[in-house]
Design a protein around this nucleic acid. Structure first.
Lengths: 222, 222
DNA sequence: ATCTGTGAATCAATTCACAGCC
DNA sequence: GGCTGTGAATTGATTCACAGAT
């Protein structure tokens, strides 16, 4: 047993559950900075995030030992460490498929660029929409997907099409070399096993919320 | 053996992780019906959902024993049972706060009404938007929230405002008696402990996706 | 022969509780 | 005295594996 020198390759894995909470901490910490807060204890952070202090400490300990005993965490430094871990120190290029209502909303979404993501392009299959501007980005034809992804080094695809076109959109993204897809269509996508998909479906979210509402009431997780 | 009369109160609790998968099964089953499929085995369902058969069987067993050994599950009956469990046999009324891009997209969202949810109203604080139509629903002023919620028995609020207004929107919903909130604003909301919040944040989803992308690649859960 | 339903076993996540540092 | 970092204990979720139903 002699683990000290930690080669980047076999960096200890952060548990999935903790990974999903890191962006939450990041958001809270960023907000705290704008409010002039420079130190936070695990207890305070937990209060802001709706979690408990032990979980916060455990989560942050996966990043390394960046707190100060008796004091708390330096907000700015923690922001840096979380960004480093999430790979947010360099920008990510994103392509949005579908220039309808949702594609529009997503592309206009302010929280995008402020968080290290840049919309390289919005593509649509409808030639009538090509050339129009959506949130400062010109809509291009879906046939250009491959060259957009290659030329612009796009690594993430966002599907904002109607459900009927979503599987086709996923296949086009995969064919263009995309390995990470964020899917907003109400459809379970079928993709090769080396492609990551996260699906966000409004209907499903409501159904889950409804379940807890009908039950006792005070449940669910933010 | 006589389980029939199951006192609503002490119905066995379904694990949270299983609850979040029920809507996925529901979506797949509904699609199967339109394709004329009437029977599915846990193995087939697992393939369609990207899960394994044991998990599917365990999840479905929480609903009761509705499969047939040696055969599989009757699709239509399973749909009914999942809907019953999720409380989707009766409609839910929803109010959307924020008539911007996102509110627009959400209200127009087809998957809404088809899944037991009805948008009672869209409200906005901007009087200029009041009276305009969004997806067949007239935009009303946020001051009417209380009466809308009361008169129309609305039980779920959806926040589709800019982050700066989201906390205020949440407070208005809570004041109007709403106990379940679906939040699309990039902000962690502070609400009383008897209120359920589910937050969906595009930026966070991308960050999580980015983490797995930068790491090895093939990860994440649909 | 096939496929469900479910205890038992395993694996992951959370919480506890306290030693170590400020 | 206050707060972090972390093993140990606990709780929850997943997977195994097989008895039981058709």
């Amino acid at each position: 047993m002699k683990p000290p020198s930690r080669p980047e390759a076999l960096r200890r894995r952060i548990p999935d559950a903790a990974v999903t909470r890191l962006p939450v901490y990041l958001q809270i910490l960023n907000k705290s900075i704008t409010e002039g807060v420079s130190q936070l204890s695990s207890d305070q952070l937990a209060g802001l995030a709706g979690l408990n202090a032990a979980k916060v400490r455990k989560d942050l300990s996966y990043l390394g030992s960046y707190g100060t005993r008796g004091v708390g965490y330096d907000v700015a430094y923690l922001v840096y460490q979380i960004k480093r871990e999430l790979g947010l120190l360099n920008d990510w290029k994103v392509v949005v498929v579908g220039a309808g209502n949702l594609g529009n909303a997503l592309t206009n979404y302010a929280g995008f660029s402020s968080r290290g993501f840049e919309v390289s392009a919005v593509v649509d299959i409808d030639s009538a929409k090509v050339g129009k501007k959506v949130g400062g980005v010109v809509v291009r034809h879906v046939d250009d997907l491959l060259s957009i992804v290659n030329n612009d080094k796009v690594s993430i695809g966002v599907i904002a099409t109607p459900p009927a076109s979503a599987q086709r959109a996923a296949e086009l993204l995969v064919a263009a070399g995309i390995k990470s897809i964020l899917n907003f269509a109400a459809l379970v996508l079928t993709v090769p096993s080396d492609v990551s998909v996260r699906s966000v479906d409004l209907g499903m979210e409501l159904q889950i919320l409804g379940y807890y509402e009908q039950l006792n009431r005070p449940v669910a997780c933010q």
